[in-house]
């Protein structure tokens, strides 16, 4: 019991330490550079308290729940020995976690606005909605495929750099052909797709797989799934921009 309380206390102080930089930056710029008082101090303190508590609970939950489930499933899939099911799981995880991602929904709506403005689609609510939805499914599909390729790479032990370099070449080629308006959104879409719950789960899956397969090094082979998930959306979003 005492150990648990101690651990929780340490975790709390860690969270405070993690947040100090943001608080410092905001205080410095607000008070010294902009020379303005902090509005709504009570609200701010309540918010900071929530953020500290939230971060502490999240990190505890990560160790108790997300990491173990990701690794257990990786071991179970390896023991089952069915590559097809594993790849289906990989696709479902990538597609399912991305399609409902709030950050992606927001980006897709902005992208539809850009497309309407650039004359790529009709500037009507229906056309914009269709465009945004199509884009969202395109990105989700690309993340699903990315996790599939990433898992295959772990199974086969391919060196990551060759795949990533090919991906970069793909990005460069697509950039040359994509409509100018879509490039910024496409580049950004790589970064926004991976959510706070997907990252720990996918990382645990990759590391678990690499540890359960003989001859794979979890450090060299286990990481890298997120890298694929942030690369393919760029290519696919530009492809979407070219086709439409």
């Amino acid at each position: 019991m005492k150990a648990l309380v101690l651990q929780l206390f340490k975790s709390l102080t860690d969270s405070v330490r993690d947040l100090l930089p943001i608080i410092g930056v905001i205080a410095f710029f607000q008070l010294l550079v902009l020379g303005q008082p902090i509005p709504n101090l009570l609200e701010l303190l309540w918010g900071i308290l929530l953020v500290v508590l939230g971060l502490t609970l999240f990190v505890q939950g990560l160790k108790l729940g997300l990491f173990p489930i990701g690794e257990t499933m990786a071991w179970d899939f390896a023991a089952k020995g069915s590559v097809v099911w594993l790849l289906m799981f990989a696709f479902a995880l990538g597609f399912g976690t991305t399609v409902a991602e709030p950050a992606l929904i927001a980006v897709a709506e902005e992208a539809a606005e850009v497309a309407a403005m650039g004359g790529m689609i009709l500037d009507a609510p229906d056309a914009r909605k269709d465009y945004a939805e199509g884009l969202r499914y395109t990105v989700a599909l690309s993340v699903g495929l990315a996790i599939v390729v990433g898992v295959l790479r772990i199974l086969r032990g391919w060196p990551i750099q060759y795949l990533i370099i090919s991906g970069y070449i793909g990005v460069v080629i697509m950039t040359a052909f994509a409509p100018k308006e879509i490039i910024g959104i496409a580049y950004d879409s790589g970064g926004v797709t991976t959510s706070t719950i997907t990252v720990p789960l996918v990382t645990a899956l990759g590391v678990g797989l690499a540890s359960s397969i003989e001859g794979r090094n979890p450090m060299i082979d286990g990481f890298g799934l997120i890298a694929f998930a942030s690369l393919t959306p760029m290519i696919f979003v530009m492809g979407y921009g070219i086709l439409l």
Partner: peptide
């Protein structure tokens, strides 16, 4: 399951706090 509950609670607190303050 407890871990998942903590993750849910933690994220909710975290996001709410960010929206409120930062």
């Amino acid at each position: 399951l407890l871990g998942f509950l903590l993750v849910l609670l933690g994220l909710a607190f975290f996001l709410e706090g960010l929206e409120r303050a930062l």
